[in-house]
Amino acid sequence: MLNRDSAKLSLIMNSHLSLRLAARKRLKVSWRGAMAAVALLLCTSAHGLSVVSRSFDELVQRADLVLVGTVTDVHSEFAAGGLDQNTIFSYVNFNDLQVVKGKVTAEAYVLRVPGGVMGRFAQDYPGIPAFQTGQRYLVFIRGNQHDFFPVVGISQGVFRILSNAQGQQVVVRDDHIDHAGRRALTTLTQDAPTLDSFIQDIRTRLTPAVPAAGNSPP
């Protein structure tokens, strides 16, 4: 899966290439070096500061449950137990479920996430995704009701289902969406994988590899 950083680099390098052609190779070597330096400056590590980095394969393999669902309700409560009973948890209700990995027996699924609002008290954890009522998500869940934030890779395992300009359902990682609304969603969705192809990618990784013909044990 192309991540945001490599996508940026690709765009920059494409610009670089076309501009070089337009200049008909009249640029000096130093200019090429300067442009390459600009591109490298924008290439950052994909490792979260306080979060373990997860590959797409790891998201699939480590998840207990992968589901697509629409958030219909989020409500908060103080913790019933634990060391800190002042902790607030929010309970995110997913409906209209499509289960890609694992099993859900009920029609709805409830995900417990930390933080929330209780009257004039509130808690948050910077870097933790916030689920929005009415939004459809694809989530790689692990350790619900047990882990601090029960999603593989924290924000790396939360994807929003959005529509692209062609009206197709596409999948965009939640933390790639500009929370301040400064980037148009159309930019993000135009190159995003469709929901169907994304689910197919997950299922492919869940299917045990079939030995190629001729490589079978005798």
Partner: peptide, 16 residues
């Protein structure tokens, strides 16, 4: 602090 596993987090700041 709620005895939950860190999962994929290695450090957590809780702001109240």
């Amino acid at each position: 602090c709620d005895d939950a596993a860190f999962g994929d987090a290695i450090a957590v700041t809780k702001r109240s």
